[in-house]
């Protein structure tokens, strides 16, 4: 009888399947900021981040302090541009340009179907940005860092 109980309990535990999606329901590139040379993670304070030609001039980050940000890409286009305005000054801003290919993708029954993005190239102006690097060429619904942006060391 003990064995039967143990078997039934094991079956019950093993047969429980998790229907949750632990990743994102869409593919978003995670961008993180670093200091050139030391690769120390940085926080940008009082920064405004907005997409070029975004409907209604919508702002993604509005004067907050961030050390990383998800930048959604347009699935209907092959290029998306983002502007980073520092200290609320529109004249002190960098523009990031991403070129990519949209790939229709079925992730799982839990997370659904979406677009993945294969990054072809990424460039940035050099007002404050030192360099930019793609560390994950195919953007999926995972939570790994995809793009690193390096700034010069603060004095």
């Amino acid at each position: 009888m003990k064995w039967l109980s143990l078997i039934l309990l094991t079956v019950a535990l093993v047969s429980c399947t998790d229907n949750s999606c632990y990743d994102h329901a869409s593919a978003l590139p995670l961008v993180r900021f670093y200091e050139t040379g030391t690769a120390t993670q940085l926080s940008l304070s009082d920064v405004v981040i907005r997409g070029v030609d975004a409907p209604g001039d919508s702002i993604l980050v509005n004067g907050e302090t961030v050390d990383e940000v998800y930048l959604p890409l347009r699935a209907s286009a092959t290029t998306t541009q983002w502007v980073l305005e520092y200290a609320g000054d529109a004249g002190l801003a960098d523009t990031i340009t991403l070129q990519y290919r949209s790939i229709p993708y079925f992730a799982s029954a839990e997370c659904g179907a979406m677009y993945n993005f294969e990054i072809k190239s990424v460039t940035a102006t050099d007002i404050l940005i030192d360099s930019i690097a793609v560390v994950k060429p195919v953007i999926d619904n995972g939570t790994d860092v995809a793009i690193r942006i390096f700034f010069p060391p603060t004095e």
Binding site: G51, P55, S58, L60, R74, A75, F106
Partner: peptide, 12 residues
């Protein structure tokens, strides 16, 4: 498949 991007107002 219905795809929706709220920031860029895409619906495909």
């Amino acid at each position: 498949v219905t795809y929706q991007n709220n920031y860029w107002k895409e619906h495909q």
